[in-house]
Design a protein around this nucleic acid. Structure first.
Lengths: 397, 397
DNA sequence: AAATCTTACTTGACTTTTTGAAAAAAGTAT
DNA sequence: ATACTTTTTTCAAAAAGTCAAGTAAGATTT
């Protein structure tokens, strides 16, 4: 349970430093004077704080701006060489790893394979070489792991991962011991949302939902500019929302789950049916073939996307009614067909929801794209640097 | 948009005062020494802060505790006579008003009627006398209004209220002018949740959903100990969640909304059918008659509640999958039959949800009961006293 | 009953942090 | 060259919390 800190001079210092770091993070490059007027702090205070941050090399002077009639401003920005974190995205038979710097740039990437059914130790062993390679020559600040499943609120334990079959695994501790940096574990969809929050839509929206369409459907929730994980890290499980309690059975055993009506599996099933009937211009049963066809005007492919949009519209109407978000952001492979089905989906959601909820709602494709699966976990490890230090103790001992 | 304050000495003072007030609010009566050790502040600091709070009469010394081997502690608590707020609950043809003190006690109540179709000015006029009566002799701190509909994030405007037919009404300004205190407007379900958060389940849960079953179904959402209102104040609209997209049409025009399958209307419809068929021991088509019968073992009445529980279970499974709350709290007239249908509902929710989400989930009846409809709006007006002062500007000019 | 220990609370010199005014630095405009 | 602007830095002052010592008021021991 998070407990508030007491307010002493240390707190004051930490709080203002955090204000400055976050302002530079969001608005940098930025001058000291601009920081002072944005934050309401005196310029003398900004001098002291930025001096400290420059001594620790978190920020650096990056150039000189144009004069507006007086001394030219010195721009400050985060120092990307201060350090970097490694983001890991674990899938069923492979893991992707990426080195991400303070400015959110994906510097290098690695990929390791492992056999289906591997235990967590095997997977960690398999990743060692890649981590060493990525971490070489950089100040490693932390490691973040995105993985399908349920995690604890400390981002330490993985309670259960269906695709890997792991239960109650502490992925964090062994890596923390080995590399001496904090290691965080989080549901993969949630890490993706973090990427979107930091490097995508986050600048414009403080409350949004990010829906990822893949084999199934998942959603991540941002409330008040923070990732909402739920009591046991399971928030956003939108795929098995029931939209037809007499409907067809889902692989989960329940009836009428949303992902029966809207997912890659749904698209592929419909594509298969169409090909068997000799309809459509697409030949292969792949998402790519289907969306190429739709984007090229194939009416059959478009019909399939339209059907999915209608189904998804019902599910997302439920989400909109519950969360009343500012925006819904869509990600997943099939989002390449977004130019075609996006407007249909938006219309469907608005048709079914209350005008008060949906009037201002924006429906957008993901802005970070596939990189989000690596940026997200890496961001997780950078998060503590930017969090408002109003709670007791560091994020993790 | 809320912007963080700068950290100066004023901030430090406000922050620590807030810590102390909140600690006293939650744990009072409490000694200075206990406050110091709970908050981590020095006892000398507590002396200074509590001295100030006593001078302003927000807190008072309320007694002396037992010695544990030394000087006996002096207990401090909120001073209920410091002030009180008025909570207003507006229904379709009447409004209930209640005076609530700092300790959450409902001191006096009033009720005013108005004719169906009245405008907001008429209703405000009708309430004047009651407000004067309630406010007489007390330091009025504010007024809070709970009303079915959509409100803005400043709690000032009512965008739309279906039951009253009002659109874009500023309920707050005329009362603020007249009484010189801040006036807040909020969706009635949300105010009820506030009451539950402050005086009910709030002590035990930081993330919960409060579901109110009436004519329809509504829900209020608490995340991280704060009411979540959504982008346009419409979060928690669970009543028109679609659980059967081919199902019967709802009064809203959509198909298969949850409230078609679980609401007072549903119960009454089923009761009516049973009476026509000559089934059941209940004679009247009222919720009360039905729940009395169920509590007395009438199998027909129990069957109706069981059917509703199964339907509600599907809807709440969707909610649990999305929010992963620690608890679901049920309120509404029919909750008197909770001892009978509560366990059934809980089992249904758990049957349909992921074990990781539902394992620890608690399902409970409301702890504040009907008083919540007055306590909640009043709480809204007291809220600013207790909010952490980390944002710029006071809650409202 | 007196002396000693404990716990609760208060006081005042001290530390830390931000402030605000003044100065320095580095420009532009006339 | 001179005056004016804008950005950044310097340093004494102000404000809040801390720390150590002291007071208050009771329990326990001798």
């Amino acid at each position: 349970m998070r407990v508030l800190r007491k307010g002493d001079s240390q707190f004051l210092k930490d709080f203002n430093r955090s204000l400055v770091i976050n302002a530079i993070h969001r608005k940098g490059p930025i001058s000291r004077n601009q920081l002072a007027s944005d934050l309401g702090l005196e310029s003398s205070t900004i001098t002291l704080i930025t001096r400290y941050l420059m001594e620790t090399h978190i920020i650096e002077e990056v150039g000189i701006g144009d004069s507006t009639g007086g001394r030219r401003p010195i721009f400050l920005d985060l120092n990307p060489n201060y350090g970097a974190s490694i983001g890991v995205y674990v899938e069923s038979v492979c893991a992707h790893l990426g080195l991400v710097d303070l400015k959110g740039r994906l510097l290098r990437r690695e990929r390791v394979s492992f056999s289906r059914g591997s235990g967590s130790e095997d997977v960690i062993s398999a990743m060692r070489k890649s981590i060493d390679k990525l971490a070489k020559g950089v100040n490693l600040l932390g490691i973040g792991i995105g993985i399908s499943g349920f995690t604890d609120s400390q981002n330490e334990m993985l309670f259960y991962s269906p695709i890997l079959g792991w239960r109650n695994v502490n992925l964090s501790r062994p890596l923390e011991r080995e590399y001496g940096v904090p290691v965080f574990v989080e549901n993969d969809i949630n890490t993706f949302v973090l990427a979107e929050l930091w490097y995508g839509a986050g600048n414009r929206f403080r409350n949004f939902i990010c829906v990822t369409i893949g084999e199934g459907i998942g959603a991540g929730i941002v409330i008040d500019g923070r990732l909402y994980e739920g009591a046991t890290g399971g928030a956003g499980e939108v795929g098995h929302m029931c939209i037809d309690f007499n409907g067809p059975r889902c692989r989960c055993g329940e009836k009428g789950c949303l992902e029966v009506f809207a997912s890659n599996s749904f698209l592929l099933k419909r594509a298969q049916e169409a090909i068997l009937k000799g309809q459509g211009t697409f030949k292969k049963v792949t998402i790519e073939a289907l969306q190429d066809a739709a984007n090229n005007g194939d009416e059959v492919a478009r019909g399939i996307f339209t059907e999915m949009s209608k189904n998804l519209g019902i599910g997302l109407k439920n989400v909109v009614n519950l969360f009343n978000p500012e925006a819904i952001i869509l990600s997943g492979e099939c989002v390449k067909a977004y130019p075609f089905f996006g407007p249909i989906l938006k219309k469907e959601i608005q048709k079914h929801s209350f005008p008060e909820e949906a009037k201002e709602l924006q429906v957008l494709p993901s802005e970070v794209g596939e990189n989000g699966w690596l940026l997200g976990p890496a961001t997780l490890a950078l998060n503590p640097l930017f969090e408002l230090p109003i709670y007791r103790g560091s994020p993790r001992g």
